[in-house]
Write a protein that binds this DNA or RNA. Structure first.
Lengths: 155, 155
DNA sequence: TATTGTTATACTCTATAACTATA
DNA sequence: TATAGTTATAGAGTATAACAATA
């Protein structure tokens, strides 16, 4: 499984730039950049997409819990949710079980935006960047990443 | 209109949070965070590691070329290279072919830091986060990511 | 006493634009 | 005229710390 065609003398697997983490990060950076470019007209950033996608996947969550899963401080979450609420994409309801916390949830408009805009845009970008993979390679990539998520690598 | 049954019952692969880009980004974010945590004592960030690893992989490059490959503006590169040069990890030499540009290259100390610190730390973090994968799955992941890099998905 | 959300503030990061020296 | 590097500056993004309401 030696990689050849390397620049310079060392094989690519020997180089830091060939490590899994490096490749993961650079690939993800490209996906994020192109997704944000495609969403620029909507005035949405990757982080907004993250909040909406998380709420769709997990159901209503407190601001702090959203921040914990996305790696964002609770003080930063305030502005993020403010903006999404002003646009009518999410709403704050007090959590009856703990009245200090909100249960932030998607509105109908939030669900519609995900289905009608974010998902198509995401698919287009994915196809452009990952279209060069064989179908079974792409499926395997998804399976491996999902497995890592199930294992808690994504928290 | 939108008939979303996403709440609660949809399989994970149907949800935005299950898309390839999302999983790539969250996985990479975790790897970056843990690598930076492990390198905190060295006073190095992921970006520094990126510059050093790139120079190791590609040989001497101009500041602008480093920035282009890492997605960083040339004005930002100045401070980044300044800091690495002050630490003796890289050095600026004028490119004889174009005396406007530098040929930034690793010093001996830079090579040593990569070999003695950055690579072991990277391997430890990778093993902790990706150790739950079957060996063939991890190899396949590397192969798929490297293929994307070869295709120019990573610029 | 601890925790959620909030606010004010300060800090970090980054890009933009103007300048220099080379091309 | 165009480009690599530099500099100053402004803007975005973020976290830290203190405060209010609730646990």
């Amino acid at each position: 499984m030696t990689m050849d065609g390397a620049r310079g003398s060392a094989p690519a697997t020997e180089m830091l730039a060939g490590t899994t983490g490096w490749l993961l990060h650079e690939t993800a950076r490209r996906v994020v950049a192109e997704t944000e470019e495609a969403l620029r007209g909507e005035g949405l950033r990757w982080r907004d997409y993250g909040v909406l996608g998380l709420l769709q996947a997990a159901g209503p969550l407190s601001q702090q819990e959203i921040g914990r899963r996305l790696g964002v401080d609770r003080s930063t979450m305030v502005h993020l949710i403010d903006a999404l609420e002003e646009r009518g994409l999410v709403e704050r309801a007090r959590d009856p079980a703990d009245r200090r916390a909100y249960a932030v949830r998607l509105t109908g408009a939030g669900h519609a935006l995900l289905a009608d805009v974010l998902r198509p845009v995401t698919e287009t970008v994915h196809d452009r960047l990952l279209g060069g993979l064989a179908a079974e390679d792409r499926a395997h990539l998804d399976r491996v990443l999902a497995h890592l998520a199930d294992q808690g690598v994504i928290g």
